[in-house]
């Protein structure tokens, strides 16, 4: 018996001691409160966010006094009126919305085959390669990556040089809408693949084999079985890509060269260039509202997808 006792690893005994201390500090009858205690940090963070939003809501109703560069004392809806009537903001909003929807669709279309191959390939080597290829740009960061595109797509960039070799005159590949969308799609792909992969893993291979034996070729297997079963993944990935690209700042700023601003860029300008905190706050709140509306729309139309966690309505 004695030998067995000394055989307990030191880690176990340390843990036992810690448990005893915890028992004194947090007696048994507090146990029911433990889960809430663990929630506290998250609640604190969200609470701070709400405080910030409250501050911004307050600022959004005050206009900028251009003489003193201070916000007015009295409340008005002037900022909101400017936000929805001035053509600059309408253009920027339209550009961001349409852009984020296009980016979402393109990203999902491109990411699905990637995720599918990554999940289904019998080769562990290929799977690892695909995962690394996915994560490598992730590690580099958005700004550096956008800068990379500047080098590749620039007027003297690799692509234009390659065009030159086959006799195509160099063209402007940067600082336009497609360049921004391209950059966003490239940036969003890892997110989409990572959200689609679990949904595809959840579809047993046997299900696809069954569809085959029941008479479906791969196109129809895809349409009638894989696609509907992967829907939670599409919804989850779509929501993430949609919200991230709607609110993106760096890619429109760098690949758009100032001519292709998204909402986030307009907000930045208001806060840090014009110093109109009131209008900036208004735009930010409107962005939150539009984003929430879009997410709510997707939730009601398609369900919450993988973001619903736990129980998904079948």
């Amino acid at each position: 018996m004695k030998a067995a006792r000394t055989a307990y690893p030191i880690r176990w005994r340390v843990m036992d001691a810690l448990e005893a201390v915890a028992g004194i500090l947090w007696p048994r009858f507090f146990r029911a409160g433990t889960p809430y205690l663990m929630l506290a940090p998250a609640i604190l963070l969200v609470g701070l966010l709400v405080l910030g939003l409250w501050q911004m809501a307050d600022a959004s109703f005050r206009t900028l006094d251009t003489n003193t560069f201070l916000l007015s004392e009295d409340y008005s809806l002037a900022n909101y009126k400017r936000a929805v009537t001035e053509s600059l903001f309408i253009t920027v909003a339209g550009r961001s919305l349409v852009g984020s929807i296009i980016v979402t669709v393109l990203t999902l279309v491109i990411s699905f085959p990637y995720a599918y191959v990554m999940v289904r390939t019998p080769s562990a080597t290929l799977r690892k390669f695909l995962l690394i290829a996915l994560f490598l740009p992730f590690f580099i960061g958005q700004v550096v990556r956008a800068y990379g595109w500047l080098i590749i797509l620039g007027n003297q960039g690799m692509v234009n040089e390659a065009f030159g070799l086959i006799g195509i005159a160099p063209m402007r590949l940067l600082y336009n809408y497609p360049a921004v969308l391209f950059g966003l799609v490239q940036y969003m792909m890892p997110f989409a693949v990572l959200m689609l992969a679990p949904a595809l893993t959840a579809i047993p291979e046997e299900i696809e084999a069954a569809a085959g034996s029941l008479g479906a070729d791969w196109v129809r297997t895809f349409r009638h079985v894989v696609l509907p079963m992967a829907r939670p993944g599409f919804v989850g990935a779509g929501l993430v890509v949609l919200t991230l690209s709607l609110t993106d700042f760096a890619i429109p700023a760098m690949l758009g060269g100032g001519s292709q601003d998204f909402i986030a860029n307009a907000i930045y300008d208001q806060f840090f260039r014009t110093s109109d905190q009131g209008l900036g706050a208004t735009l930010a709140l409107l962005l939150v509202a539009v984003g929430s509306l879009l997410v709510g729309l997707v939730f009601t139309l398609f369900g919450a997808g993988t973001l619903a966690m736990g129980r998904v309505k079948a």
């Binding site: 299900i207 085959g212 034996s213 029941l214 829907r231």
Partner: peptide, 20 residues
């Protein structure tokens, strides 16, 4: 001949019913 061109009904180990 691929499975979908054979006239074979198969009951799979895990049934592989379509949950949707």
């Amino acid at each position: 001949v691929p499975p979908h061109r054979r006239s074979i009904g198969m009951v799979f180990q895990k049934l592989a019913l379509f949950p949707h």
